[in-house]
Simulated scan of single mutants.
Amino acid sequence: MMLLTTPPRPLIPRMKIAVIAPARYPIREPYAGGLEAFCHTLVRALRDQGHTVDLYAARGSHGHVPDVELPGVEWGELAREATDTGYPPGARELEDAAFARLREYLATQDYDIIHNNSLHPALFTPGNRLPLVTTLHTPALPEVQSAIAVAGAAAGRFAAVSEATAGAWELQAPVTIVPNGVDVTRWLPGPGGQSAVWFGRIVPEKGLHLAMDAARLAGMSLEFAGRVGDRRYFESEIVPRMASMDATYRGELDHRDLNDLVRRCAVCLVTPRWEEPFGLVAKADDVAGLARALRIAAGVDRSVVRQWVIAHHSLTATAARYAELYSEVLAR
């Protein structure tokens, strides 16, 4: 009888890798958002696999290259006007200049691979000789799409977190799909509880107000955590709802404390109101449908969900997939 086995992954040589993070927020806990968490955890996972990895990120990051850092976005006295997409006066110009300097610096280094997660157009230039791999974390951005088109083959290779995200961009070559991964050694199972939980950036497109409405309709309390990315939204939509229901804001949490929060809650609400690049899970604005789904999901066997994640979306597997992509680029 012939036994069928899964073929082993190819042996990947150890590489010297530069990871470029987005410039807006420091790469440190508590993370400003999912992209910041992705960059930091991927760097750690690649290092665990034996690669040498340098992180290029905003001022105030942990474990980055401090001599060539990005400026970040500081709102100062305009903090109440802060958003996750806008800039205070002069900040965009500082960011553009910093990325131009970074591009010139990297051209003098001997990295095997430069993994770009910033989507800044300055990195895509005609004649570019950087061994560049870019992960597409967002829908297409016009200025970046234009820079990629002008750069042509010099724009390098691309990965995307989902087929939907890849399809939103116009690229000359096929895109490698690498789903995001979860560090299953740090995100551990828990006993559950009575409350629902929500976490993420507190901005309109993440739909926290819908999660609050659904939890109230389902008769459940809600605990939520995350960075307030839009102060006006928080004050106009979130604070009034907190006064009319059993909802508790836990602030910005590092992954250990966030894990503890999630472990002791019954069910997690995810309420995107835009086309999330990875993990489309709900129909926007259907509060009644979300409340019904909330009651159903609270009864799902947590151990089954965890085993599925381990099998399909572990951080270790994500890092291995990227290492394979890097080796493909090196082989050409």
Score class of each variant (00 low, 15 high):
136 L>R: 08
287 V>K: 01
255 H>M: 00
215 A>F: 10
114 I>G: 05
56 Y>I: 11
168 A>V: 01
291 A>H: 09
170 E>K: 11
186 R>W: 00
65 V>E: 14
56 Y>V: 12
113 I>L: 02
159 A>N: 14
207 G>H: 03
141 L>C: 04
48 D>F: 00
148 I>Q: 01
49 Q>P: 00
6 T>F: 09
8 P>I: 07
76 G>A: 04
290 L>Y: 11
208 L>D: 01
325 L>I: 15
109 Q>P: 03
104 E>P: 03
302 R>W: 07
44 R>N: 12
249 Y>D: 11
195 S>E: 13
62 H>R: 12
297 A>V: 06
173 A>V: 08
196 A>I: 11
257 D>E: 15
146 S>N: 11
316 T>K: 13
162 S>N: 05
143 E>G: 01
24 R>A: 11
228 V>G: 05
66 P>Y: 06
14 R>A: 06
143 E>T: 05
10 P>R: 10
109 Q>V: 00
268 C>Y: 14
302 R>I: 11
182 V>G: 08
243 A>I: 02
160 A>F: 02
23 A>T: 10
275 E>M: 12
101 R>T: 10
260 D>M: 09
183 D>T: 09
250 R>N: 13
94 L>V: 03
229 G>Q: 01
232 R>Y: 00
194 Q>S: 14
56 Y>G: 12
166 A>M: 06
310 I>E: 15
25 Y>I: 02
4 L>A: 13
224 F>M: 12
198 W>N: 11
6 T>R: 15
125 T>Y: 08
33 G>A: 10
122 A>C: 01
109 Q>K: 13
253 L>V: 13
83 T>K: 05
